[in-house]
């Protein structure tokens, strides 16, 4: 299966929220939808779920117009919510039945997912009596109770402690292994990096970057190296490179211990290395730059916006 979002726009009153969002995701792959708050991720997901209608653009599944009602979709909304006064099991079965699966199957699935998420002991408890983390797990179990082919998780890791995050990670991996389409939005880049073959970074209602994560990383790391010296500080090393190779190397960034350099004018790694050795620089670290998703996100969305995001 291939789910394609093509050129979706959405306006709320006079505010244009989405300016033509496009991306695609296939079965057995996960797509990470990234973007800062208000970028348009949730609106995009809600259009996918038919909560909102797009002003223009369409969604296709295997080339045909996507009708949400014809497919089993497991949707975990950003605004979590279930019935606080109902028991865990009762509402899971209800939600399963609402999605069209028979009562017995819904009950069996509810038990299966409660077992899988180590929540079976709570099946007879009212939701409001559970901790926030456990409520979140119930919400996830309710999302999966209908055996969905497409899973859309909006910020699934928020509010989970490390142990529960680990459980959720393994569940998401299972879903991917079972050849399901998984779309999830998250602010936690490490999770996206771990599961997602594809990403789409949305900024101010536009997709600023999308595609295969490995390709994107390769492209971002192209002609870049990471360098550090045992006998010089990063400032001294920067001054040295500016003096010796002014028009052949560009400093694109720095971490706490390393400089990130881009080679210009087809300067080879051998030439850089020879220059360093010729000047008796005691090289500590010299390798190809492999950007993290965080680096890519910052570079695309902007350092300032990243700071706001974290704040």
């Amino acid at each position: 299966m291939k789910l394609e979002v093509r050129n979706i726009t959405k306006k709320f009153g006079d505010t244009q929220v989405l300016h033509g969002i496009s991306f695609a995701v296939e079965s057995g792959r996960a797509l990470g939808l990234l973007g800062r708050n208000g970028a348009g991720k949730t609106t995009t997901i809600r259009i996918l779920m038919d909560v909102f209608h797009a002003n223009s653009g369409e969604v296709f599944l295997d080339g045909k117009k996507f009708n949400q009602r014809e497919h089993q979709i497991g949707y975990l909304p950003e605004e979590r919510g279930l019935y606080p006064k109902k028991t865990v099991f009762e509402q899971m079965v209800y939600l399963g039945r609402l999605r069209g699966i028979p009562k017995a199957k819904a009950a069996a699935n509810a038990r299966k997912w409660l077992d899988r998420l180590e929540m079976r002991e709570y099946e007879g408890r009212k939701l409001e009596t559970l901790s926030k983390g456990n409520q979140q797990k119930v919400q996830l179990a309710s999302t999966l109770v209908c055996d969905p082919q497409i899973i859309i998780l909006d910020e699934p890791f928020s509010g989970l402690d490390p142990v529960n995050s680990q459980i959720l990670q393994s569940v998401v991996r299972e879903m991917i292994d079972e050849d399901k389409i998984v779309i999830f939005s998250s602010h936690q880049m490490s999770y996206v990096e771990e599961f997602c073959e594809d990403i789409a970074i949305i900024n101010k209602g536009e997709v600023v970057l999308s595609g295969d994560l490995a390709d994107i990383k390769k492209r971002f790391g192209e002609n870049q190296i990471v360098l550090s010296a045992a006998d010089r500080s990063l400032d001294m090393l920067s001054s040295f490179l500016a003096e010796k190779m002014p028009d052949r190397l560009q400093i694109t960034g720095r971490t706490r211990d390393e400089l990130i350099l881009r080679s210009l004018k087809n300067t080879s790694r051998r030439e850089i290395l020879e220059c360093l050795l010729a000047n008796n620089i005691e090289i500590e670290h010299f390798e190809s730059y492999k950007p993290s998703l965080n680096d890519i996100f910052v570079s695309e969305v902007g350092e300032e916006e990243k700071k706001e995001e974290l704040a």
Binding site: V51, E79, G81, L95, L98, R99
Partner: peptide, 16 residues
């Protein structure tokens, strides 16, 4: 209540 406890979005996306 379904709006205030945010159940409504789950319900609306589960059935018509």
């Amino acid at each position: 209540q379904e709006k205030s406890n945010r159940t409504i979005e789950v319900l609306m996306t589960s059935t018509d």
